[in-house]
Nucleic acid binder design. Structure first.
Lengths: 339, 339
DNA sequence: TGCCAAATTGAAAGCGCTTTGAATATGAAC
DNA sequence: GTTCATATTCAAAGCGCTTTCAATTTGGCA
């Protein structure tokens, strides 16, 4: 069933039928009702490709998911973020186009998306300091929103980010207030911007208290359970073992917990742990009382915000950058206690 | 830069340029080379919408991700599956169209995808027994592949699935062989087909050994850490506590491990655990020696297989169903021992 | 009754590509 | 030098929609 069939059926021109369905005013209410009824009855839906060819808008948003050729890991945050964004797209009749590409081909992918005109805008995932994608997208003229920020370089673009620096500074201060002095940081890979900012916050808190941060207690790595386990295990074996950990993700923290329990220590009593909690739907931080004391910020919500911001930008047609900086919630759980 | 511009530039007709780029034989090698060079030089890529309007193929595959209105959870398996499928699509110049929709609107979404002709085929996620989507997609005439199977009802469709029944039967037998008699099953929600099959396998092993399965030791629920923790905690507190657990996912098992350690028991010595390991990239089952004894099957691989099967079906044009049944690998880790 | 503005409808062009059918150029065979 | 098959190129139609511009109808008012 296409427009021609439908209009023939109704004895109307394609013009009128198209206008009736798209709520143009120059169509009588009587015909509009008749047309809409017929459209529903015959399950008519405008062919997306034809429609977007005619209008010049694809009604689709692109997400380019780079698969690291070195690390072969899929960001576990991804599912919840996508789900959040997807909800917004569905509600606004947009499609989501996902490209999973080896990171080395990322630039080519963006260029193709632009040239093939298959999306109206893109979300940029996992920004790195001085990220080359930002100038690229600007030069291509595609509207985009970055989930996170890329420090250094051009900062004149739209983003939604968590205040990672402040968040980790607060976490460190919380531990200092409990009397801890030997804090460990188990962070994500440092070429990711968020990890860099978290470390800065961690160090800033140390500086403010006049406590020297021990480089041996600051590690960065893949955000896996296994890495958390090894890193924490190694640190706990040191003579200058930390009394508290700040951990960049729930998944890593699960490994940290395993290391702590393997070392026959009790979480919250012998050792304190604060995590950053992305509020992943399948890893809730306890039901009533949080298992971990955490700086919490829902990545599902971030997905929604990014998507909404991008749609707003596209609709507004005005390209002045927008920013949303989310503060985390510091929720106290059972994993922290006095030193 | 569009086809017209490019052909004007070259002093050729659009026909010839199009043919040159699409490797049609009736174009001289000299012109083909000239055209291809110019295309690269001017970053020309055919507009997807125009192309698919002309060819009738959208070169896109749809994935409908239902968000349960009740459970609000995103399947953690999702990211790795999508990454696997996405790799295959990229390699074959296909796009992936993701629709995140409340489960109640799923039917409407499939109908729209069909009517709007925005995809050439779809992957069906999370089949349930007697799943209504299968007859629906058949009636709509869209090629599709199911990740998993829907027992009961029409079985005449293409799928890629793990042999869940056999897998859990083997796991139970492995524990029986170690001398365990009181086995617990911590399973996914039973309206999911895979969970149903796993339970069948669990029960089949019991029946074969003449051991009565204790209904109190078989639970189903959300696949979260928290559910695993609570379920295992409650069971361990019983007078007829299990000596071994079979757990349907790594994430649940992490909760089980927490419950075990809270009960001051040692995993692998006091209590055995076998998990089903989907080999999620961010939750590796230990680095050298597996933490958990597991029935393992990579969901990333399953994503690739589903995608490849669907593309094959679309290209073959032949609609006879194909099936791939994957056997799991039973790898012995440190979480099991004699009763 | 006649006139003009407003309301309503339609024909046709165009979005950027593929593909059919026709036209032209080339070259081998006579 | 023709002739005809083959190789190469092109003009134009068509994919299903939107939108411009033109045509028609309607109704208010003098």
């Amino acid at each position: 069933m296409n427009l021609k069939n439908l209009s023939d059926l109704l004895g109307l021109s394609q013009t009128t039928v198209s206008r009736a369905l798209n709520d143009y005013p120059e169509v009588s209410e009587a015909t509009r009702a008749r047309v809409k009824a017929a459209a529903i009855k015959h399950h008519y839906r405008a062919n997306t490709r034809a429609k977007s060819l005619a209008t010049g808008r694809s009604m689709a948003i692109g997400h380019v998911i780079p698969i690291s050729t070195r690390h072969e890991i899929v960001n576990p945050i991804f599912a919840d973020f996508i789900a959040g964004a997807g909800e917004v797209y569905s509600r606004n009749q947009h499609d989501m186009l996902l490209s999973v590409v080896p990171d080395v081909e990322e630039e080519r992918t963006y260029r193709e998306l632009a040239a093939k005109a298959s999306v109206d805008g893109v979300i940029v995932h996992g920004p790195r300091p001085n990220d080359p994608r930002i100038p690229l997208l600007k030069s291509l003229g595609i509207p985009f929103v970055v989930h996170g920020r890329a420090s250094d370089g051009d900062t004149d673009y739209s983003w939604v980010d968590v205040n990672n620096r402040r968040s980790f500074e607060r976490a460190a201060n919380f531990l200092f207030d409990l009397g801890h002095r030997r804090l460990a940081l188990i962070n994500g890979l440092e070429f990711m911007d968020f990890a860099k900012r978290r470390k800065e916050g961690f160090l800033a808190a140390h500086a403010a208290r006049g406590v020297a941060a021990n480089p041996a207690l600051m590690v960065t790595g893949e955000m896996t359970e296994d890495f958390g386990f090894r890193a924490a295990g190694a640190m706990l074996a040191r003579p200058d073992a930390p009394t508290a950990f700040i951990v960049s993700s729930m998944i890593m923290a699960i490994g940290v917990r395993r290391a702590i329990s393997d070392a026959r220590l009790k979480l919250g009593r012998d050792i304190s742990v604060i995590i950053h909690d992305d509020a992943l739907s399948y890893l809730p931080n306890g039901a009533d009382i949080p298992i971990f004391t955490a700086t919490k910020s829902s990545v599902h919500e971030a997905g929604k915000l990014c998507a909404q911001m991008l749609l707003d930008i596209i609709n507004a047609g005005d390209r002045t950058p927008r920013h949303t900086l989310l503060e985390t919630e510091l929720t106290v759980g059972e994993s922290t206690g006095p030193a």
